[in-house]
């Protein structure tokens, strides 16, 4: 091994301290994250209100272990079992289907269901969810090999919807293509999750599976019509 030159005789670009400084320079990316409100600091001057992750909330009482075969073996044991979820989703579709087959969620149906349940679960979910002035309207979305139920949703612009979603067999995705990008979501098997979403533009948006779920994965899509 050749003798390394003594530090004092070296150009500073050849000193270990400078190399370490260069190596750590990548950490400055933190400041850009902070500027977009994506790091723990108050420097979020580049962030807009819509920026941020999808705060997906597992339903209260569910022991969530994503992507687990254990989930598929369980029969619920929390706020809603897969059978209960299927039942309420089918009722959601039956009650709110329009003549063209699309499903249009309503606030009346949401309130009626809350009143009918009356088991305290809703209060728990409300406590866990956003506490803004306008209560979201419930949307039930069931993912299964290789389709969604309902297949077509008809929603209103600038109205908050609480999406309650469950994959009924294996892990699926329920991503939405909106604008010219995708809003990517994973949905683990047998885990009920909820997320409040508000669509700010009119249009037809595709729901599609982004988690490989078997040979029919690329047939799995639905549609959201925002009016």
């Amino acid at each position: 091994m050749a003798e390394a030159a003594k530090p004092e005789s070296r150009h500073f670009t050849l000193r270990p301290g400078f190399a370490v400084f260069v190596g750590l320079f990548v950490l400055t990316l933190y400041f850009l994250w902070a500027a977009y409100g994506a790091a723990p600091t108050s420097l979020s001057f580049l962030a807009e209100e819509s920026a941020g992750p999808a705060p997906v909330t597992p339903m209260a009482g569910m022991d969530v272990q994503s992507a687990s075969v254990e989930n598929m073996a369980q029969d619920g044991g929390g706020a809603m079992t897969p059978d209960e979820f299927e039942e309420i989703t089918l009722k959601f579709v039956e009650d709110l289907s329009l003549p063209d087959g699309s499903v249009q969620p309503t606030r009346e149906w949401t309130e009626a269901m809350e009143a009918a349940r009356g088991d305290g679960a809703q209060e728990e979910m409300d406590a866990a969810g956003p506490a803004d002035a306008e209560e979201p309207i419930d949307v039930y979305l069931m993912a299964m090999r290789f389709s969604y139920e309902p297949r077509v949703l008809r929603l209103d612009r600038n109205v908050p919807y609480r999406f309650r979603m469950m994959s009924m067999d294996v892990n699926h995705g329920a991503s939405i293509r909106a604008g010219f990008a995708g809003h990517i979501m994973r949905r683990p098997a047998m885990v009920l999750t909820e997320m409040v979403m508000t669509f700010s533009e009119r249009g037809e948006f595709m729901i599609y599976c982004t988690v490989y779920c078997g040979a029919g994965h690329d047939q799995m899509k639905g549609k959201i019509i925002v009016e």
Partner: peptide, 10 residues
């Protein structure tokens, strides 16, 4: 992306 997430009050 025209989806506001968790913006229940809008």
């Amino acid at each position: 992306v025209p989806i506001l997430v968790g913006a229940a009050g809008h």
